[in-house]
């Protein structure tokens, strides 16, 4: 168990700075857009403010940046796999540890976004006690598809949707990292994040088919990532291309 946790810790240690950078940048951009674009003086409802600040697209940027943080190679020659292959923890085990770490990074991304919206609502309410009362804000949250999914923790269907959403993102990020480490382009795992972002920002209501497609593709991605790490020969793909 200690060895497995050690691998998880390693993944975290190698990438946590990037993850913090992404979270921090998203918080700053969201708050800046709230103060600058929100134009609260001429706004009657919190829903109008949300319409102006394009928070969904900033979240989309944060979401994509999180993929970069979790999967983009750390250096020009990322060959630490030579060390990972000499451990008693299998490379497949290492991929599962990576999966867990990725999930632990996407969860705060969603929580931070939900927290920011609630914070903005609180600030709006404080500034406009008549327009921004708690009841009105609650209605606003219900009106917005993405917000509804983000903050409706009491609705089990929405909670399950959000968990599946995070698992899709996690599987794709894991697949991306495995393929990037082999100097391959993970085309397949780019598709589900794009679908998820379109669901968030454009296809609010009729998303079931697209969401199902994202689930299927992400499962394929995860299986592919695990199959790639077969025993002690995961670097074969790179080495085949190198000079003898």
């Amino acid at each position: 168990m200690k060895k497995w946790l050690s691998v998880l810790e390693l993944h975290a240690a190698m990438r946590f700075k990037r993850v913090l950078l992404v979270l921090g940048t998203m918080i700053v951009l969201q708050m800046l857009s709230f103060w600058i674009l929100g134009d609260q003086s001429n706004t009657q409802t919190f829903f109008q403010v949300l319409g102006k600040i394009k928070y969904g697209w900033i979240f989309a940027l944060g979401f994509l940046a999180m993929y970069w943080a979790l999967s983009w190679p750390l250096g020009r020659n990322e060959t630490y796999s030579y060390t990972l292959q000499r451990l008693s923890v299998t490379e497949r085990g290492s991929v599962w540890m990576k999966f867990i770490f990725n999930a632990l990074c996407f969860v705060p991304l969603v929580i931070v976004q939900a927290g920011l919206i609630l914070l903005m609502a609180k600030i709006f309410e404080a500034g406009k006690p008549f327009a921004g009362n708690a009841h009105g804000i609650l209605i606003d949250l219900e009106k917005d598809g993405m917000l509804h999914a983000l903050v409706s923790f009491s609705n089990p269907a929405q909670v399950i949707y959000r968990i599946v959403y995070i698992l899709i993102a996690t599987a794709c990020a894991t697949h991306m990292e495995v393929l990037f480490a082999r100097k391959q382009t993970p085309i397949l795992s780019f598709i589900p994040p794009v679908i998820l972002l379109l669901i968030n920002n454009i296809w609010y209501d009729e998303f079931h088919v697209a969401f199902a497609a994202a689930i299927i593709i992400s499962v394929i991605c995860m299986i592919t990532a695990l199959v790639r790490c077969r025993g002690k020969k995961p670097l074969r793909d790179i080495l085949e291309q190198q000079e003898v």
């Binding site: 390693l10 990438r15 030579y82």
Partner: peptide
């Protein structure tokens, strides 16, 4: 195999350390 590979160590000019730690 994984059972005995820890008896071997490797130093390469490609580098096998973890760059970010």
């Amino acid at each position: 195999t994984r059972k005995n590979i820890t008896r071997l160590s490797f130093a390469t000019c490609e580098h096998s350390f973890f760059p970010n730690i």
